[in-house]
Design a binder for these strands. Structure first.
Lengths: 213, 213
DNA sequence: GATTATATTTTGACACTGTCAAGATCTGTT
DNA sequence: AACAGATCTTGACAGTGTCAAAATATAATC
């Protein structure tokens, strides 16, 4: 109605595939929504403002996402993929470092990811989705796999004697992750305000979790 | 206008002090708001529904709380007091138990409090107040004191050799608390769904944090 | 190529939210 | 009795998520 139908109509100048009226609205929504969340958190993402930003009417997004919840889940899912690419590689990749060093590396990377993408992290592990909302089956699966990878690495580290063997791998994985997650949240939610000590806290966490050599 | 002015007008049958029109609206609001949060979380508390519940017009609460934020802070503050009475007593009180047992007791009590009052806990340590909102000076002070008590106990436990001495008391307090907090949040926010293993997780946390004897 | 079916988008509407401004009402003090 | 201040109400505004129905564009079929 406004300036939407002027330029990108029959001139197919996009690299990917511009279908129908808008041209891959789904991806545009996902991208803009992620931006908005990155700027002001989940609270700053409104369906209407998002539609505005993409240049489409208020209810258009509802033909691509059933819910606001479903949109959030899609973004969170992307977040898990991003995290995996940065953090998840560490256990398998570096063959020269021993378990202790790898673990330290992982912890630091994990905390750094949460610190650099606080809003994304909040969405991925926050109650907006997991308690108040309802996680998409797809998201549930992605996050399950993510924890599963963590669990199996913890098992390896236990066998190497890097992590304590007093408790089952499951419990150990749960508690070690809880430590990382707790630290991230305390910083992320504005309770620990001194972000300058982040690396030092990271090192302390590692020392407390690893077995005493 | 409705049934408010019928009964409790000149007949002063209340135990406390019924002032002005409603009679200690401040306390009534605080109480009902806490109830509502307990039922459905912070998300379920709306100023209008709260006013309705108390039997007063939409904007009446705004003469006792500047903001929704201020109301939330007041509730959170009460939460800290409750927590202190249940959990905070443990370090000082029990003189017969040694440090290790006391620490285990504390961890269990802390987790239990969060598990029994999930919404209250979420409010106390959530981003609604600390990041999105803005904590009242009074609330800031209360929470600061709470952490201070934790810190000084950690110092004692380090001197007793119960907690590791590798890092400063501050860092140790931060990381140990992060572990508890992280575990509470993971359960609380619906990420760890198996609440039946709570005690076992609690024990694992204790074993991982304490020094190896 | 015209017609039908389907995918996509829009307009209108509803119930809800927090909160401001102005006015009404009650209480305690002078 | 008159006033001042506390307390409460009504009206209003901008914002939210999302449903239903209508409009439009594209794809498939004849």
């Amino acid at each position: 109605m406004s300036d939407k139908n002027t330029a990108p109509d029959s001139s197919d100048n996009s690299p990917a595939k511009k279908n129908y009226h808008h041209g891959d609205l789904y991806q545009s929504l996902l991208k803009s929504a992620t931006e908005m969340i990155g700027e002001g958190g989940v609270a700053a993402l409104s369906m209407r403002k998002l539609a505005d930003r993409v240049g489409v009417s208020r209810t258009a997004p509802y033909h691509h996402f059933k819910d606001k919840n479903e949109l959030l889940c899609a973004i969170a899912e992307q977040g898990f993929a991003d995290q995996e690419q940065i953090v998840g590689m560490i256990p398998a990749h570096n063959k020269t470092l021993d378990g202790r060093a790898l673990f330290a590396l992982y912890v630091q990377a994990y905390i750094q990811f949460a610190d650099k993408n606080p809003q994304q992290y909040d969405l991925m592990f926050g109650r907006d989705i997991w308690k108040n909302g309802c996680p998409t089956p797809s998201l549930t699966e992605v996050s399950r796999r993510s924890f599963q990878r963590w669990l199996s690495w913890v098992e390896t580290l236990q066998q190497q004697g890097v992590l304590s063997n007093n408790d089952s791998a499951l419990r150990t994985a749960q508690i070690t992750w809880a430590t990382l997650h707790g630290l991230c949240r305390l910083i992320n939610d504005g309770i620990y305000t001194e972000r300058s000590n982040l690396e030092e806290m990271s090192r302390t966490a590692v020392r407390m979790l690893l077995t005493t050599q």
